[in-house]
Design a binder for these strands. Structure first.
Lengths: 355, 355
DNA sequence: ATGAAAGCGCTAACAG
DNA sequence: CTGTTAGCGCTTTCAT
């Protein structure tokens, strides 16, 4: 046995395929074959065993960068979020991450912070890093960045929000249903004059929830008064407050307000408080999303629960399919929300509305 | 001019350095030099300009995988979190991400979900992916995974929590101060019998906040009664409730309870509610972290604000320093918290305690 | 100032 | 079954 080459168990440098090959006295390609499950069968069982042993001894770990270069597959996927501080984002990301890790991928996180330049920079970085795919939360009708990357070859799937183009794979909540669920609840409670704080109409959540709301209103006894709808520019508490103030200032009577999401609902709480109107005694408010801690608000918020982690997992699943088999036609998956009744909704003060 | 090689503007395949070289009629190494700011000066300005133009024309983007292989530097860093759903995590991650992206790095996110095997898998993945460094939220005295990677050559920095070993770079809140801030507040309000719901003592936040609390109590007029301290096994609402119930059941009188974090404080709300004790009228409660929406709880929570995004940015900064200059001795940075008084704390019912 | 050549660590034909 | 060869796309000596 020649002892002249390093017998010390690799003190610093990471072991490479060649190190293993040398010590196992085989060629690197044999090592490669022995180490990869799929090609293991090509190599003599005894040799394979020896190789495995040496690899373990040297604590060999494949260099994924090198493999990626060779295979032009990085096993990484980008996840682009508009704002990490948005309470619905973490649960979705969690769902995505879990599924992706399970499939052997690694998640590259990018926070656009609502600025297009940051979004663009992340998308570029993903291309440069050879990410195998991208999951985006940021879909909006006016979003050039996403449009440009879609169809550029990189598999993209949308999550939470989608675009009008139904051919883009996406995992979204049933927003129409979100809208009608709350109306049905309020109508059952006896409300007739219901105001609506809409989300940004350039987002699918904004427009679809409004559609669902209006459809349900029209289906119910008293049709919807368009003057009772005001659109928020963004999904923020401040915008929710502004919209609700506007509603209050209009002088038109209403006994309940539905907000397109929980942040807007929180803004309604604020505006109501300022105006000295109690919730739910004077006016009921309901939201949508069932964000974390919605049950701890004052009052606990009646809202619509969306299984955000599931949404994320579904998006990851869609992307995986896209990556593995780019040819099969893209799907969209929609997850059903459920109403959760808490303390912010109650029957209107006087059974029937009117002044 | 020979027109026989592809004149169409690269319909599908990404342009490579060789494509640029071919079209610019120079060698690939010249292209490389022209494209990299540092080596640009080595090349004739006119040539450089031509190369740049061709690169732009072909929409050339360097393949970072290839560069990474050559340079053994991936420009990616792993961020290991224990639980993405923990409300303090997203703000910290946001701070990290912002700083890292600014420095040209990309963030690999890993969610351990409190299971060591997942943590280990992520750390392994980071090594395989050749991540340039790691930022970990998970430090705990009994955490083998982190211990093993620290000193294995990969730069690691801890954030939010740290380990007893002060030589490990970390960005943490001033937990001692967190503890004393709340005591001073409560004492000023007139409280004398103050209970403490401690966090897990194997975490630095748990033990240091307790230390800060005890020190401040002993500094104040009436020293602390050890029977009034109970330790939560985890930072969860359920554990907070359990601890508070235990305190209530002990029969020892107290007029305020301080919880080691806001989730535990929320649990105290629950236990107090069950026992029919009003907060803050019967018992004041204060938390720590000032997590998102702590101001919307019922009652709005008096707590200690920690600049989480700053904490994240500081951690990123530390890691960057570690990566660029591994030789300079590791630092720790501690960020100062501030008290935020809301509605969950008030003077005790009867000026002096006692039954 | 630029070209030639080598090589980062890996896998995939293609022999044998 | 295993070794040889080639090359993924890039940077970097080393010549010239």
């Amino acid at each position: 046995m020649s002892d002249d080459h390093a017998t010390t168990p690799a003190p610093k440098r990471r072991a490479t395929l060649r190190d293993v090959a040398r010590l196992a006295e085989v060629h690197t390609s044999t090592v490669s074959r022995a180490l990869n499950r799929n090609t293991r069968s090509m190599v003599d069982p005894e040799t394979a065993e020896r190789v495995l042993a040496v690899a373990a001894y040297l604590d060999y770990r494949p260099n994924l960068i090198a493999r990626g270069l060779k295979l032009s597959r990085s096993h990484s996927v980008g996840v682009l979020v508009p704002d990490l501080l948005n309470p619905v984002v973490p649960p979705i990301v969690q769902g995505i991450e879990a599924r992706l890790v399970e499939a052997g991928y690694v998640v590259l996180l990018g926070n656009a912070n609502h600025v297009q330049a940051r979004e663009q920079a992340f998308v570029d970085a993903m291309r440069d890093q050879q990410a195998d795919g991208l999951i985006a939360f940021t879909a909006s009708d006016d979003d050039e960045v996403l449009r440009s990357i879609i169809g550029s070859g990189v598999p993209v799937v949308l999550v939470n929000r989608t675009l009008p183009d139904e051919s883009i794979p996406a995992a979204v909540p049933d927003d129409i249903l979100c809208g009608s669920l709350v109306v049905d609840h309020l109508v059952k409670l006896g409300h007739e004059r219901i105001a609506y704080v809409a989300g940004p109409q350039r987002t699918s959540t904004g427009s679809r929830r409004r559609q669902g709301f209006e459809a349900a209103m029209n289906r119910s006894l008293k049709p919807f008064n368009p003057a009772l709808l005001v659109e928020a520019a963004r999904y923020t508490e401040a915008e929710g407050a502004r919209c609700c103030r506007e509603l209050l200032a209009s002088g038109i009577d209403f006994t309940a307000v539905v907000a397109a999401n929980d942040m807007l609902a929180l803004g309604c709480y604020d505006a109501l408080g300022e105006a000295g109107r109690a919730c739910p005694e004077d006016i009921s408010v309901v939201g949508c999303n069932d964000m974390p801690f919605a049950d701890r608000f004052n009052p606990p918020l009646t809202t619509v629960n969306i299984a955000h982690a599931e949404l994320g997992a579904a998006a990851a699943e869609l992307l995986l399919e896209r990556i593995e088999s780019p040819l099969v036609p893209p799907k969209q998956v929609v997850v059903s929300p459920t109403l959760v009744v808490r303390k912010s909704s109650a029957p209107p003060r006087s059974p029937a509305g009117g002044r």
